[in-house]
Every structure is written in structure tokens, then in C-alpha cells.
């Protein structure tokens, strides 16, 4: 059991390092978009999903209806449904409350590393799962606090490029999914539809209308060889 915890902690280091800039960036952008420091920390501690947190604060900055912000975050996090369905089969021997706890920590790297561990023939024990997940969780929350605290000192975010870092980050995430079936048609359909919707309907509807275009295309397209891999981005 002790070695499982340590193995998990060791594997968490590279995730912590690569996620750190985004944890800090989230905190800084959150206060830049009108959140308090503690709200930024609360969001990292309870939503705990980087990309959707970024989407959320982007929408907080515009004057968007509250339900639409919640829905957008739900939409961005919808991929977790697949992780949940897939990894749920591996949590053998977990009690109901242990499962409920494990699912809270089911972020992209947690999912990817869990699937990898099963593939290596090792048991997905709770000590390994939390040994991997808890350090990432604790540092993620700390980064929101540090980023938000120092973010308040930034007086001219435009000069630092903070206003345009998110689109670059989102494009990086989109590129991370490029091995998936129908990736290019989906991206082109959603991209074009979002530009049209942005121009003729207005923000923030370009998000839902644009996304819908790609999703409908994927559902209607001729079925490819079923690829259930769902490796996500961080």
C-alpha cells in the first residue's frame, strides 16, 4: 500500500510541473476578470478542471447570463462522462463512497494515467489513485491563490499579453485531440459555424452554436472503426 502511494506521487510530479503555469495563469486571469482571490481558490478547489475554469472566467468577463456560464462549463467538461464510464469499470473493490471520492479527482491526466496503469497489469488501488491525485489537487489550489494574489499587482495585462493567452491555450488543447476520428472536419465545421454565429448572432452564442455544428457532423458522419480512446489534454 505504501509503495502504491509513493508510485502515484512520483508519477504526479510531471503533471504538477506542466500544469503549474496554467494554475497560476488561472488565478491571475480570474482576478483580472473581476473575481476575488477566494473565489478563484474556491473555483480551483471545487470545479477542478483547468480548461473549463478558463472558459468560465472568460465568460465572467463578458456579461453573460449565469445559466449559460454554468452550461458552458458543463459542456467543456462533458468529456468526463466518457472517462467516468471507462474508468468506472476499473474501480473494482471500491466502496460506494470511495468511488464517489475517486470520481471527484477524475481530471484528464488522472484518467490517462489510470488507464495506463491498468494496461501495465497493475491494480488501480485507492492508495495509488489518491497518491497520484492529491498532490496535483493541492498544488492546483495553491497556484490559484498565488496567481490571484500576484495577479492583482498586474496593472496592464495587455502589455503582458494576458488578454490573448487563453485563445492560444485553447488552440493548443484543440490540437491535442487531433488523433481522434473526424477531428479536422469537426474543427472546421465548429470553427466556421462559430465565426458565422459570432458575426450574425453574437457572443456568447457562437460557443454553443459553433460546438453544435461539429457535434452534429460527428454524429451524422459515416461510422468509422470505433476508436474508444479518449486521451485528453491537460
Amino acid at each position: 500500500m505504501k509503495s502504491d502511494i509513493l508510485a502515484g506521487m512520483r508519477q504526479s510530479v510531471s503533471v504538477i510541473v506542466s500544469a503549474a503555469p496554467f494554475g497560476l495563469l488561472f488565478g491571475a486571469l480570474a482576478v483580472d476578470n473581476g473575481m476575488t482571490v477566494w473565489q478563484a481558490v474556491l473555483m480551483s478547489a471545487t470545479v477542478y478542471a483547468g480548461a473549463s475554469q478558463m472558459v468560465g472566467i472568460e465568460l465572467f468577463g463578458q456579461n453573460v447570463a449565469p445559466w449559460l456560464i454554468v452550461f458552458s462549463i458543463f459542456a467543456v467538461n462533458f468529456r468526463h462522462v466518457l472517462y467516468s464510464a471507462s474508468v468506472g469499470r476499473r474501480l473494482t473493490g471500491y466502496s460506494v463512497s470511495q468511488k464517489a471520492l475517486a470520481f471527484f479527482f477524475l481530471i484528464d491526466p488522472q484518467y490517462a494515467e489510470s488507464e495506463r496503469r491498468v494496461e501495465q497489469g497493475k491494480a488501480l488501488t485507492l492508495p495509488w489513485y489518491l497518491g497520484f491525485g492529491l498532490p496535483i489537487y493541492v498544488t492546483w489550489i495553491s497556484e490559484a491563490w498565488i496567481g490571484a494574489t500576484f495577479g492583482k499587482m498586474i496593472s496592464n495585462p495587455q502589455a503582458l499579453g494576458l488578454d490573448f493567452l487563453l485563445p492560444i491555450y485553447f488552440l493548443g488543447l484543440v490540437m491535442g485531440f487531433r488523433k481522434r476520428a473526424l477531428w479536422l472536419p469537426v474543427v472546421l465545421a465548429s470553427g466556421a459555424a462559430s465565426i458565422l454565429a459570432w458575426k450574425f448572432v453574437g457572443s456568447p452564442w457562437h460557443v454553443s452554436l459553433g460546438a453544435l455544428a461539429g457535434i452534429i457532423l460527428a454524429a451524422a458522419a459515416p461510422l468509422p472503426k470505433v476508436d474508444s480512446s479518449s486521451e485528453g489534454a491537460k
Binding site: F78, R79, L171, A189, I195, G210, A219
Partner: peptide
Amino acid sequence: RIHPRVEAALNAVPAAVLITLVAPSLLTG
């Protein structure tokens, strides 16, 4: 099991949502 079309739609969700946050920058940037 999940219907393949539902699965294909679910697989498309992340890229479809995220690209909409980037694409309008091509007009405004």
C-alpha cells in the same frame, strides 16, 4: 454499451467546444 453515433458525438465535444473560443479571433485579431 453506448450507441456508436452517441460515442462519435461525445468524442467530438472537446474540440468542437474549444475551437469556438479561438476561431472568432481570426476576425478580431
